[in-house]
């Protein structure tokens, strides 16, 4: 709809520097995933046994929360392009609320695992689990700060800078898709 009609045929969303960051992060997380799969290949049984201690339901709900958050942020970007700043700001707030929900649920999940004695030093699986999920967690926290900055941009007196909004949205969507892969590799694959 608005995306197709208001964007030029070829348009790099956001500031070009965000793509250096995003592609760099994709390489770094790709290395994490490779290391995880390498270790998993060497002790498949341990990884399967350890995986049963994770809460697949919590992981799935967190996936749905981040997907919903991404939808709100994408709709907010479209609304801002259409100069509907009130809707854009409201949608961004909803996106941030979902992100905060992810943080709370993830914290609860860690708390329950740590309470059960499952720590980063328990075994190789939990080392990867805590490493990957905590690095991702900090990405979410940074993303929440960025969403607050974007919301201020939308509520300012000057017209919002679309490139800034697209840059922040690009970062937030990256946080979303990295979690999709973490959920599949760490929680579900057998």
């Amino acid at each position: 709809m608005t995306t197709a009609t208001t964007l030029p045929a070829r348009h790099l969303p956001g500031d070009p520097s965000i793509w250096v960051f995003v592609l760099g992060d994709m390489v770094i997380f790709g290395c994490y995933f490779a290391a995880y799969l390498f270790d998993r290949g060497h002790d498949h049984e341990l990884f399967l046994q350890s995986q049963q201690h994770l809460s697949q339901g919590v992981g799935a709900i967190n996936t749905l929360i981040l997907l919903t958050s991404s939808l709100f942020v994408a709709l907010s970007t479209q609304a801002a392009r259409a100069a509907d700043l009130r809707a854009a700001s409201g949608l961004l707030t909803l996106g941030g609320a979902c992100g905060a929900g992810f943080v709370l649920l993830k914290s609860y999940e860690w708390y329950s695992k740590l309470s059960a004695g499952l720590t980063i030093s328990s075994n190789a699986f939990f080392m990867h689990y805590y490493m990957m999920t905590s690095v991702h967690f900090f990405h979410v926290l940074l993303g929440l700060v960025i969403l607050v900055i974007l919301r201020r941009e939308l509520q300012g007196s000057a017209p919002p800078r679309m490139q800034l909004l697209e840059t922040g949205a690009t970062y937030w969507h990256m946080v979303d898709f990295l979690w999709i892969i973490i959920f599949a590799l760490v929680y579900l694959m057998r």
Binding site: T3, L7, P8, A9, R10, H11, L12, P13, L67, S70, L71, V73, A74, E166, A169, T170, H173, M174, D176, F177, I180, I181, F183, A184, L185, L188, M189, R190
Partner: peptide
């Protein structure tokens, strides 16, 4: 599980990140 994750990721990248309009 992995195929679904990769398809989902591609949808997010192309549609939400608007990479389908990118160079």
């Amino acid at each position: 599980v992995v195929l679904i994750a990769l398809v989902k990721t591609r949808f997010v990248i192309r549609n939400y990140m608007e990479v389908r309009f990118a160079p």
